[in-house]
Design a binder for these strands. Structure first.
Length: 107
DNA sequence: CGTCTGACGATAT
DNA sequence: TATATCGCCAGAC
């Protein structure tokens, strides 16, 4: 097998974020084995084409990153709310509560 | 092959 | 809390 590309590792991690949870760019990067490369996660998602739950990835402040797309922020927020993720008055997600915990599976 | 751009994060001031 | 700076990779031209 070819060595997985950087982007493919990112996609693999994003794909396993469970519904109703969110992860930060830095967190995804770390889980993908790319610590410190939070930017690549954003770049990768911009190129993912939409075959992934990209809406579950937000920045370290629990805020949706503005992008050149225009209303992408609004779309992402609605997708998350429809999954049960609530935003506070500042339009931020309480990461302490919704942050994805990969090892938190309940056996 | 050089240059520019693009969904971030941490640190310093 | 806000602003500025650096580092990182891939794709388009």
């Amino acid at each position: 097998m070819n060595p997985p590309s950087t982007y493919q590792r990112i996609y693999a991690v994003v794909a396993r974020i469970p519904r109703g949870c969110v992860a930060t760019y830095g967190q995804v990067a770390q889980l993908a084995g790319l610590p410190g490369q939070a930017r690549l996660v954003g770049y990768a998602l911009s190129a993912c084409g939409g075959a992934l739950p990209w809406q579950r990835v937000v920045n370290a402040r629990g805020r949706i990153s503005p992008r050149g797309d225009g209303n992408g922020e609004e779309i992402q927020r609605q997708l998350l709310e429809s999954e049960g993720v609530r935003f506070d008055e500042g339009g931020r997600i309480p990461l302490a509560r919704y942050r994805w915990r990969p090892n938190d599976e309940h056996p």
